[in-house]
Every structure is written in C-alpha cells, then in structure tokens.
C-alpha cells in the first residue's frame, strides 16, 4: 500500500473514527449525524429480545441441544437496574446433572443479537474438539455470574458463559466468552478469564474457538481461572482477553 500522506489515509488502519475533519473545534455535520445514527442503533439493540426457538434451531443445525432457564429478572428494566437478580436463577428446573464437565450457558446479556448470531457458529467450532463438553443452557435477562449458579447446579468443574456484550457504536452484536473454574455463587471477576469482541469484524468465531480451547486446556491443567491464568499462547494472541479496564461486572 502507498505511504499515507493525507489525514484521511489513516482510516484504512482502524475502525475508530479517525480523520473526521473539523468545523471550528466541532465535528462536521456528516460525522455528527453518523455518530447519532450509531448511538440510536445501539440503544435499540439493548432493548431487543432473544428469539429462543430460532436459537435452538440454529444449535440443532450444528448438532447441539439446549435447555432454557430464566434469571430472577422479570423484564428488561429490572435487568438494567438489578444486576443481583440477573445473577440469580429463578429456579434450577430443567438443568441436568453432569459432574466434572464444562457446562455452557448462553445469555442475552446486553445484546440478544450477539448470542443469536455468533453463539451457534462458535459452539459449532468447539463441538467435537472439546473434551467433557457438558450441557448447554439458554438464559434470558442473564448476566455473566448467572453461570456460577448454573455451573454449580449442574455439578460442572467449569462453566463457559457466552453473553451479549454491551453494544458499542461500531458493534451492536459483540459476543463475550467467560471461563470460570469451579463456578459457585460468590466467584469474583478476578476468577474469570474473558475472550471478548467475538464477531466477524472483531475476533471471528473460529479464532475465538481456538483461543478458548487453549484457555480451557490450561485451566484444566492448572485447575484455576482468572488472573492466575495468563494468556501466554503464541501467535494467535491478538484478541480479546480481559478488557483492560477491569472494573468488575462492568460488562453484562
């Protein structure tokens, strides 16, 4: 490629909003309205509802079945204001016992579209390569820590939670994957490993599956997850573990 000489040439290197131009110290009108449109799309994504039958059908396409559970949140507003209820199961009915496995929970989180679109292909890449893959559950109005209760109820040695991340302006459908060893109520976020930004223009599902398989292998070898399990795999390390701003539970 040619050497960039114009400001706008920087755009080819990043999806960030670089080289927007300036009117006085403000944004040009087109950039200003493009931002507003992206914010509107993200706001709408937060309110979208998970289509469970369609998700189950997509999972069947890759040979997987999933049961359905509910968090203690009755609706979206409660979900947004009461994270404590989003971490609790309404009941454990429908969850099978599967001691010693890696259980999997799919949660709408803050973007139903992320789970809807990216969870089936990601699980398709994992299935067959993952030892002791346990039961899959789908939860609505759920947060990451809901997996602690699900994993505990199932008797799993670990839980993988695939959850819709907080919609951003460029990515209203970004999926996050959280691994927790020996899940139980009260686990902190420092005890989890996260692979984030799973979507076609971020970390594609095939690469995310490779990364997760490596982490799961290390987790099982070390018998722990979280800050004690560093991501030191070579080569494919370019993506999504532990968003650097580590305020707990900031995500879903």
């Amino acid at each position: 490629m040619s050497v960039p000489v114009l400001w706008r040439d920087l755009r080819r290197f990043t999806p960030a909003r670089v080289a927007l131009g300036r009117v006085g110290n403000g944004l040009p009108t087109d950039a200003q309205l493009a931002f507003q449109a992206a914010h509107a799309a993200a706001r709408d994504a937060v309110q979208a509802v998970l289509d469970i039958p369609a998700l189950q059908a997509d999972l069947r396409q890759v040979g997987l079945a999933a049961s359905v559970v509910h968090s203690a949140c009755p609706d979206r507003r409660t979900f947004l204001l009461r994270p404590d209820l989003g971490r609790r199961l309404r009941d454990t009915a429908g969850l099978p016992l599967a001691p010693g496995c890696l259980a999997i929970l799919l949660c709408d989180g803050l973007s139903a579209a992320a789970v809807q679109r990216h969870a089936p292909p990601l699980l398709g890449h994992l299935a067959g390569r993952l030892e002791r893959m346990g039961p899959i559950a789908i939860a609505v109005q759920g947060r990451v820590a809901l997996g602690d209760e699900v994993g505990d109820a199932v008797g799993a040695e670990a839980i993988l939670v695939l959850i819709g991340e907080r919609p951003g302006l460029t990515a209203p459908d970004s999926l996050g994957a959280y691994l927790t060893w020996q899940p139980k109520r009260g686990c902190t976020d420092a005890e989890r490993n996260c692979v984030s930004n799973i979507r076609p223009d971020g970390l594609p599902t095939a690469a995310a599956a490779d990364k997760l398989l490596w982490l799961i292998m290390r987790m099982r070898a070390l018998r722990l997850s979280g800050v004690g399990l560093k991501d030191e795999q070579p080569a494919i390390s370019q993506a999504g573990l532990d968003q650097g701003r580590s305020i707990p539970a900031v995500g879903p």
């Binding site: 990043t14 999806p15 960030a16 909003r17 670089v18 927007l20 944004l27 950039a31 931002f35 992206a38 914010h39 991340e165 907080r166 919609p167 951003g168 302006l169 460029t170 990515a171 970004s174 930004n197 968003q243 701003r245």
Partner: peptide, 11 residues
C-alpha cells in the same frame, strides 16, 4: 477518536 471507543464499547 470521535468519542467512540471501538474496543471498550462506550462513549
């Protein structure tokens, strides 16, 4: 850039 953090998904 443009008030949009494309990694952390916030403004």
């Amino acid at each position: 850039p443009g008030a949009d953090d494309v990694m952390l998904s916030y403004q």
